[in-house]
Amino acid sequence: MTGAILLRILAGAGALVVAFFALKALYEEWPKSALEDQVTKIMMALLTLGCAIVFTVAIGMAGRI
C-alpha cells in the first residue's frame, strides 16, 4: 500500500466520522435559538461541507495533484 492510498483512506474515513458527528451536533442544536447557537448551526453546516469536500478528494472525484 502506497503512502498516498493510506492518506486517502485516512482522509475518507475521517471525513465520514467527522461529518456524522457534525450533522448530529447540527441536529441537536437545531431547536435552540440563542445567538451563539445560531452561529454554531452555521459553523456545523460549513464543517459538514468541508468534510464532503475532503471525502470527494479522498475518493478521487475532486482535487488537483
Binding site: 498516498a4 492518506l7 486517502r8 485516512l10 482522509a11 475521517g14 471525513a15 466520522v17 467527522v18 458527528f21 457534525a22 451536533a25 454554531t40 459553523m43 456545523m44 464543517l47 468541508g50 468534510c51 475532503v54 478528494v57 479522498a58 482535487g63 488537483r64 495533484i65
Partner: peptide, 24 residues
C-alpha cells in the same frame, strides 16, 4: 508545484475533528 493534496486532506480532517471535539 502544487502542495500535496492527500496530506492536506488528512490535516483538514484533523482540524475539522477538533471542531467536533470542541463542540462536545
Amino acid at each position: 508545484e502544487r502542495p500535496g493534496l492527500y496530506l492536506a486532506a488528512v490535516n483538514s480532517i484533523v482540524l475539522f475533528g477538533s471542531g467536533v471535539t470542541m463542540h462536545l
